[in-house]
């Protein structure tokens, strides 16, 4: 563990300016991920700028019917918020399926989105890892990769993004509000995260020093019928092998609109656009759900030891859509 300085951010502008000006600086949320990395030597910032107390702890309605979630809203508070539970149950379900009560009580919205992969080699500085040390190689490719990606990976990195919340936000098409020295910008969450390509050291498109201030949820009425299904080895306290966030709007047995995103399968939360396309206008039947899932997973390129994720993802998509549509039309 390398010594570092600590500053409590006074306001957004100075926090952004300070971190931007110092290549070794990092934002600190609740620290439930970053502090582990400090101990393990995975990250060695020389300055932590604590943004967990900035005044972004509100969940507010947006003009146009959406909802804005402040960057420092704690995971527990977000999960039990009445508006979120009623209008976006998949967000609540995703949060509650992650980590533990203690962790959720402190973890922040932005920190959750920016948490880094749980690839064991990434977290072990004695092994090569392109994400941690670009150019050193990917230990997981031929190593222990049961939990790794089946979609969108490259030979440079096959890690998956670990956040459950991000999967639900991806299904909803949330927009991330960011503050930088050059001003503010809005990034659709689907564009926030990157595929690894040849630069897996970058999880997101954020520039050094850009601060997430909020996440905006669109109005999306059909999200009231949404859910999050997380498949994992243990009944709790485990990252997803595969997860599915889905919302569906069915009228007289036909899918009018649908949102599906997958977790545990790629370097980013995976919006299942092909499946969505296949389903729009299709009958709400198991056969159609299966065909849509298969269309999405046709591009899967599993590794030696994670081919099971393909049928697991397929079955989970089908089961989740079935559950949602049955619920709607009993």
């Amino acid at each position: 563990m390398i010594p570092f300085d600590y500053q409590r951010a006074e306001d957004t502008r100075s926090a952004v300016a300070t971190v931007t000006a110092r290549p070794g600086a990092a934002f600190l949320g609740a620290g439930t991920n970053l502090v582990d990395h400090l101990k393990l030597g995975v990250a060695a910032p020389d300055l932590l700028v604590d943004v967990s107390h900035l005044p972004f702890d509100m969940i507010e309605p947006l003009a146009g019917g959406g909802v804005r979630i402040g960057a420092t809203v704690r995971n527990s508070d977000l999960a039990v918020d009445p508006v979120i539970r009623q209008r976006y149950p998949m967000v609540s379900a995703a949060l509650l399926s992650g980590a533990s009560g203690q962790l959720r009580n402190v973890a922040t919205t932005a920190g959750n989105l920016m948490q880094r992969t749980r690839c064991p080699y990434f977290q072990d500085v004695t092994t090569p890892c392109n994400k941690r040390r670009p150019g050193s190689g990917c230990s997981a490719l031929e190593g222990y990769h049961r939990d790794h990606a089946i979609l969108g990976a490259s030979r440079h990195c096959v890690a998956v993004h670990p956040s459950d919340l991000a999967v639900a936000l991806t299904a909803l098409g949330a927009v991330v509000q960011v503050e930088g020295v050059k001003g503010a910008r809005s990034i659709p969450i689907i564009d926030l995260y990157r595929l690894p390509d040849d630069a897996p050291q970058h999880d997101t498109v954020l520039e050094h020093g850009e601060l997430i201030t909020a996440v905006d949820l669109p109005a999306l009425p059909m999200a009231t019928r949404s859910t999050y299904r997380k498949v994992r080895d243990r009944a709790s306290y485990a990252f997803a092998l595969v997860s599915v966030a889905a919302a569906v709007d069915v009228e007289r047995g036909t899918v009018r609109d649908v949102r599906v995103a997958l977790g545990g399968v790629a370097h980013k939360p995976w919006r299942a656009r092909r499946a969505e396309e296949a389903l729009r206008g299709a009958p709400a039947t198991d056969d159609a759900f299966r065909a849509a899932a298969e269309a999405e997973l046709a591009g899967a390129r599993p590794l030696r030891d994670n081919a099971f994720k393909v049928p697991m993802a397929r079955n989970t998509i089908v089961a989740t859509l079935r559950e949602l549509t049955r619920r709607e039309e009993p």
Partner: peptide
């Protein structure tokens, strides 16, 4: 759950923490 996965190239257990090495939790 319990499974210490030996990485034969490095000679060490790859999943050497409690996120990787699962033991039954209360919910199990």
């Amino acid at each position: 759950h319990e499974d210490s996965v030996m990485d034969v190239r490095f000679g060490q257990v790859a999943n050497h923490d409690f996120a990787g090495y699962h033991i039954a939790s209360n919910a199990d």
